[in-house]
Lab assay of single mutants.
Amino acid sequence: KSAVKALFDYKAQREDELTFTKSAIIQNVEKQDGGWWRGDYGGKKQLWFPSNYVEEMI
């Protein structure tokens, strides 16, 4: 599983989504079709976030 870095702040709209700030590192990313991926951040595990808010880390 990979890690991504947030390009923008994102505030969860639902309880199954992540809230994060710009430059946050989201771990254990599971990529899905449809523009939403799952990952771990801030003590939350495998919640959804919009993939267009992040960049992949190499």
Rank of each mutant, 00 (worst) to 15 (best):
G39N: 00
E30H: 14
K11S: 14
L7F: 05
F49I: 02
K44E: 10
F8G: 08
K1N: 12
Y10F: 06
Y10S: 05
W36Y: 09
D33F: 09
S23K: 09
G42W: 06
Y53G: 03
A6N: 04
L7I: 14
I58C: 14
G42Q: 11
K5E: 07
Q32D: 11
G42N: 13
Q27M: 14
T19Y: 04
M57Y: 14
V54C: 05
T21K: 13
G42C: 13
E17H: 07
E17M: 02
L18N: 02
G43Y: 07
L7N: 07
E17V: 00
M57P: 08
T19E: 10
Y41Q: 03
W48E: 04
E30V: 15
E15M: 10
V54L: 03
R38W: 02
S51C: 14
E30S: 14
K5L: 11
K5V: 13
V54P: 01
R38D: 03
A12C: 08
A24Y: 00
Y41D: 01
Y53Q: 07
F49R: 00
F8R: 15
Y41R: 01
N28K: 05
N28Y: 06
K22M: 10
N52H: 13
S51D: 06
Q32P: 12
Q32W: 14
Q27P: 03
D33W: 08
D33I: 08
T19M: 04
F8M: 14
I26M: 03
G35A: 09
K22D: 04
L7S: 08
V29D: 02
V54H: 01
E17P: 00
G39D: 03
Q32T: 13
G39R: 00
A6Y: 00
K31I: 09
W48Q: 06
A6G: 05
P50H: 03
G43C: 10
S23N: 15
A12M: 04
E56C: 12
D33M: 10
G34K: 07
D40T: 00
I25G: 04
P50Y: 01
N52I: 11
G35W: 07
L18D: 01
V54N: 03
D33A: 13
I26E: 01
E56A: 09
G35Y: 11
G42T: 04
I25E: 06
A3R: 14
I25F: 07
Q13G: 08
P50N: 05
K1P: 12
E17Q: 11
G43K: 07
E30R: 13
S23L: 10
Q13P: 03
S51N: 07
I25A: 04
D16W: 10
R14N: 14
A3L: 14
E17I: 00
Q27F: 14
D9S: 07
W36I: 01
G35F: 10
S2Q: 13
G34L: 06
F8E: 11
D16T: 10
G39V: 02
Y10Q: 04
N52L: 10
K22A: 13
E55H: 08
V4R: 01
K1M: 12
N28G: 06
W37H: 03
Y10P: 06
Q32E: 11
A6S: 04
G43L: 07
D40S: 01
G35T: 08
W36F: 08
V54T: 07
V29A: 03
F8Q: 13
L18S: 01
W37K: 01
K5Y: 07
I25Y: 06
Q46F: 06
E56D: 13
E55D: 08
G39A: 00
G39Y: 01
A3D: 12
Q13L: 10
Q13R: 12
E15G: 09
K44Q: 13
W48G: 04
R38N: 05
F20M: 04
A24S: 13
D16K: 04
W36K: 05
Y53K: 07
E55Q: 10
G39P: 03
D33K: 10
N28A: 05
K11M: 15
T21H: 12
G34Y: 06
S2P: 14
L47S: 12
Y53C: 15
F8W: 12
G34D: 08
Y41N: 03
A6E: 04
S23C: 15
S23T: 10
A24R: 01
V4S: 05
Q32C: 15
E30Q: 14
E30A: 12
Y41W: 08
Q32G: 12
P50E: 03
I26T: 01
E55W: 06
L47V: 05
K5F: 07
I26R: 02
S2D: 11
K5R: 14
E15C: 14
P50L: 03
T21D: 11
Y41M: 05
K44Y: 12
V4E: 03
R38Q: 09
Q32H: 15
A12I: 02
K22T: 10
E55Y: 08
V54R: 00
Q46W: 04
Q27V: 15
V29Q: 01
Y41T: 05
V29S: 02
G35S: 08
N28V: 04
K5I: 14
F20N: 04
G43T: 10
N28W: 02
Y10M: 00
A24E: 06
A24Q: 06
Q32F: 15
N28F: 05
E17A: 00
A3E: 12
Q32L: 15
Y41V: 04
K5Q: 09
R38K: 12
A6C: 09
K22C: 09
W48V: 05
V29T: 03
S23V: 04
A12W: 02
A24I: 05
G43I: 07
L18V: 01
K1H: 13
R14L: 08
T21P: 15
E56F: 07
A12V: 02
V29R: 01
K11I: 15
K22F: 05
I26A: 01
V29I: 08
E56P: 10
E30N: 13
L7Y: 04
S51W: 06
F20V: 03
E55C: 13
D40K: 00
Q27C: 15
K1C: 15
D16P: 01
A3P: 09
I25R: 04
S51G: 07
K22S: 09
A24W: 00
A6H: 03
I25L: 09
G35I: 08
D9A: 08
F49D: 02
T19L: 03
L47K: 11
P50S: 00
A6F: 00
E15R: 08
Q27N: 12
V29M: 01
S23F: 14
E15D: 13
D9I: 00
W36R: 09
E15I: 11
D16N: 13
E56Q: 08
Q27T: 15
D16F: 08
E15L: 10
R14D: 10
R38C: 06
V29L: 03
A3K: 13
A3C: 15
I58P: 14
Q32A: 14
V54G: 04
G35V: 07
I26C: 04
Q13K: 12
A12T: 05
N28M: 06
W48T: 04
Q13T: 12
D16Y: 07
K31E: 05
F49V: 02
A12N: 04
D33T: 12
G34W: 03
N28H: 07
S2R: 12
D40A: 00
E55M: 11
L47Y: 12
E15T: 10
K11Q: 15
Q32K: 13
T21F: 10
P50V: 00
K1D: 11
N52V: 10
S51P: 04
I58S: 14
A12R: 02
Y10E: 06
G34M: 06
D9Q: 03
Q27D: 11
E15W: 12
G34R: 05
P50G: 00
K5S: 05
P50K: 02
I26Q: 03
S2W: 11
K31G: 03
L7K: 11
G42L: 09
R14M: 10
E56S: 09
W36V: 00
S2K: 12
Q27A: 11
Y53S: 08
D9E: 08
D33H: 11
E17T: 02
W36A: 04
L7R: 10
E17N: 01
R14Y: 11
A3H: 12
P50T: 00
I58V: 14
Y53E: 02
E55P: 01
G34T: 07
K44W: 08
K45C: 13
K1W: 08
Q46D: 07
E17R: 00
L18C: 05
Y10A: 01
Y53M: 12
Y41F: 11
D9F: 00
V4L: 06
A12H: 05
